[in-house]
Simulated scan of single mutants.
Amino acid sequence: MAAHNELGNKGEQIAVNFLRKNGYQILEQNWHFKQKEIDIIAIQGDTLIVAEVKTRSTENWEHPSEAINNSKIKFLVDATEAFIEERDIDKEIRFDIISVIPENGEWKIEHIEEAFYPPMN
């Protein structure tokens, strides 16, 4: 496995552990829709959380949250709609970004709640 894939997998597991520690119930990790996936789907209270995890080895080039573009947002919204229909879920939906960056032997975690809203069509 390529080093960047290993780093990404490690970052996703750190994000899952972080969410669990903070009271989230993890429903799915790496849920596939078409040829892509949603990193984490969780529940907190009455809200369905769709979390995109971005792991980088450094912040020097681009902050991980800046890697979410319009096509990624469209995919996440479409995939979330499919997940909701498949599971017959009736909850508020929130789209979060969790950035994970190694820093001085620790992991810096930034959880951005309501990182974006679905575009109005």
Rank of each mutant, 00 (worst) to 15 (best):
residue 19 L to K: 09
residue 107 W to T: 10
residue 102 P to M: 03
residue 23 G to I: 03
residue 112 I to D: 13
residue 20 R to P: 01
residue 68 I to K: 10
residue 81 E to W: 10
residue 102 P to A: 02
residue 40 I to G: 03
residue 121 N to T: 08
residue 49 I to W: 01
residue 40 I to F: 05
residue 35 Q to R: 13
residue 46 D to G: 14
residue 91 K to A: 11
residue 85 E to A: 05
residue 116 F to H: 10
residue 24 Y to A: 06
residue 9 N to M: 15
residue 76 L to T: 02
residue 24 Y to K: 04
residue 41 I to K: 00
residue 60 N to V: 10
residue 95 F to K: 10
residue 38 I to N: 03
residue 38 I to E: 03
residue 113 E to A: 13
residue 117 Y to Q: 14
residue 32 H to G: 08
residue 23 G to M: 02
residue 3 A to K: 11
residue 20 R to G: 03
residue 36 K to Q: 14
residue 75 F to K: 05
residue 70 N to E: 05
residue 118 P to C: 00
residue 117 Y to D: 13
residue 62 E to C: 09
residue 48 L to S: 00
residue 63 H to D: 15
residue 7 L to W: 07
residue 78 D to P: 06
residue 58 T to W: 09
residue 72 K to R: 15
residue 47 T to P: 10
residue 34 K to N: 14
residue 40 I to H: 03
residue 10 K to D: 14
residue 82 A to H: 04
residue 27 L to H: 04
residue 33 F to D: 04
residue 49 I to S: 00
residue 94 R to K: 05
residue 81 E to V: 01
residue 106 E to S: 14
residue 59 E to C: 13
residue 64 P to I: 01
residue 50 V to W: 02
residue 88 D to K: 11
residue 103 E to Q: 06
residue 7 L to P: 06
residue 50 V to A: 08
residue 74 K to D: 13
residue 119 P to M: 07
residue 104 N to C: 15
residue 83 F to T: 01
residue 98 I to N: 05
residue 111 H to Y: 04
residue 78 D to F: 07
residue 121 N to D: 15
residue 63 H to Q: 11
residue 73 I to K: 06
residue 118 P to F: 04
residue 56 R to M: 09
residue 38 I to L: 11
residue 42 A to T: 00
residue 2 A to S: 08
residue 26 I to K: 00
residue 23 G to E: 08
residue 55 T to P: 08
residue 74 K to F: 12
residue 41 I to T: 04
residue 87 R to L: 11
residue 102 P to N: 07
residue 86 E to I: 03
residue 4 H to P: 10
residue 57 S to A: 15
residue 84 I to D: 02
residue 102 P to D: 11
residue 1 M to C: 07
residue 106 E to M: 05
residue 31 W to L: 12
residue 3 A to C: 10
residue 50 V to D: 12
residue 106 E to Q: 14
residue 60 N to P: 12
residue 93 I to V: 05
residue 104 N to W: 09
residue 38 I to T: 10
residue 62 E to K: 09
residue 49 I to G: 02
residue 26 I to W: 00
residue 40 I to S: 01
residue 22 N to D: 13
residue 119 P to L: 08
residue 60 N to T: 10
residue 117 Y to L: 14
residue 50 V to S: 13
